[in-house]
Amino acid sequence: MTQDNLTQDLLKTPLHGLHIDVGAKMVPFAGYDMPVQYPLGVKKEHLHTRDSAGLFDVSHMGQVRLYGDKAAQLLESLVPVDIIDLPVGKQRYAFFTNEKGGIMDDLMVANLGDHLFVVVNAACKEQDIAHLQAHLVDGVELEVLDDRALIALQGPKAAAVLARFAPQVADMVFMDVVQIELLGSNCIVSRSGYTGEDGYEISVPADKAEELARTLTAEDEVEWIGLGARDSLRLECGLCLYGHDLDTTTTPVEASLLWGIQKVRRTDGERAGGFPGADIILKQIETKDVARKRVGLVGQTKAPVREGAKLFDADDNEIGMVTSGTAGPTAGKPVSMAYVKTEFSALGTEVFADVRGKKLAMTVEKIPFVPQRYYRG
């Protein structure tokens, strides 16, 4: 199959033409033709986002609305997260689990008052929607939003930029979500993102996406940022990528995601448990007995250690594998996420990564590698 045929088979976001116009390098990603980098280049895009503001096209993600009095109860039966008490105007991180306690996908859930707004990963979109549909109950309706784009404005100058067009966004804090008019379009705006920086994610009607993107990137502070820098930014700030650091064989306890399971869902009470795999996950929480743990690793040499690198102890026994790795442009050193046998998960532990036949020393260090700078007011 030729490259042209391959590209024709890929889905395109509403901003596809604009990416081509501004010189993006496009690659297949989760079934879409997506920009991996722009003329600025991955490292400069990464550093620009940390210093100023970057615009990301994340329209390949799935956007869903759940309506009805029992919508929160329905969703809460599928995730180990407190959805029922999620306040109006707030958003929360969640994950679907399976009967073995594994993670089927991670997602964002927002309470918009008359409905829940849910954003799921592109690669899991069809599976997640089918999962929700299979569990629908009377009085709950699911609407798939195929006619909206999703863009993320991220970085320390994001708030100043967006406030020029919608002053009320300056008053939002991390994980706030509002429905507002932006350039005459009805948008859903959350103060959140996937870079560890302050910023916003904006759901916009597909036919208005290009106007909004062009308006934002015309501001001096804003540059287009591709998937390459998105990956290194999220990794430095300790954020998991589904299909790499999380999958159906990994439980939230192994993945060090206990902070995402609120107390009401895991201690005695009528809402504790009741989600797929609850018996396994709650037992792991209680006993702290898991065979492996997600950890952060920092290289002792300058060579980045990428996904798939096997990890060994000092006696050459295999003890785990790297799931994400980058050169760490802001951290100034190679950083990776990995799963290791629990006995090797303590901070300061030295392990060795096999990179093209060479054993490179790495140290277990605290995640995030670069401080998260969410705006909490």
Rank of each mutant, 00 (worst) to 15 (best):
L227R: 11
V177P: 08
R214E: 12
G226D: 09
G228K: 05
E223N: 11
E211K: 13
Y242W: 14
E223D: 07
I281V: 15
K263A: 13
V290S: 05
C187H: 05
E223C: 10
E201N: 09
A272P: 01
L241Y: 06
S190E: 03
T267G: 00
E286H: 13
A291K: 14
T287C: 08
I280K: 14
L227I: 11
V178G: 00
R265E: 10
P276T: 07
I180Y: 00
M175P: 00
D176G: 03
T250C: 04
I280T: 15
E210P: 02
T287N: 11
D279G: 09
I188N: 08
S192L: 01
R214M: 10
I202W: 02
I180F: 00
L239Y: 13
E211P: 00
V264H: 00
D176S: 12
M175S: 12
V189L: 07
I285M: 15
E254L: 04
Q284R: 12
E181F: 01
K208A: 14
E201C: 10
E270H: 12
D289E: 15
S203Q: 09
E210M: 04
L227K: 09
I202S: 03
E197Y: 02
V189K: 03
G238W: 01
T248G: 03
D207E: 14
C240Q: 07
P252Y: 10
D176A: 05
E236I: 05
E236N: 08
V177T: 14
K288G: 14
G260N: 12
D268A: 14
G269A: 11
R271N: 13
G273I: 08
G277N: 06
S256M: 12
A213F: 13
A213R: 06
H244T: 02
R191A: 14
L182W: 03
E270T: 13
T287P: 02
R214D: 05
G273W: 08
T267A: 10
R230H: 15
R265L: 04
T217R: 11
V290F: 04
I202G: 06
I188F: 10
I285A: 04
M175R: 13
I285Y: 10
V177F: 02
S192K: 00
E236F: 06
T249N: 14
L257T: 02
T250K: 15
C240M: 06
R214F: 02
L258V: 14
L182I: 09
L233N: 14
L239K: 11
K293H: 12
R191Q: 15
L235V: 08
I188L: 13
G274C: 08
G199N: 09
G260Q: 14
D220H: 12
L233I: 04
A255Y: 06
R230C: 04
E286L: 13
L183I: 03
D245E: 15
D220Y: 00
R214A: 10
G196N: 03
L212M: 09
T267Q: 15
T267L: 11
V189F: 02
A206W: 05
G269H: 11
C187Y: 01
F174A: 07
L282F: 06
G243R: 08
R266H: 15
A213V: 07
D279R: 13
D176T: 01
H244W: 09
T195V: 03
T249D: 15
L233G: 02
P205K: 04
T249G: 12
K283Q: 15
S192I: 00
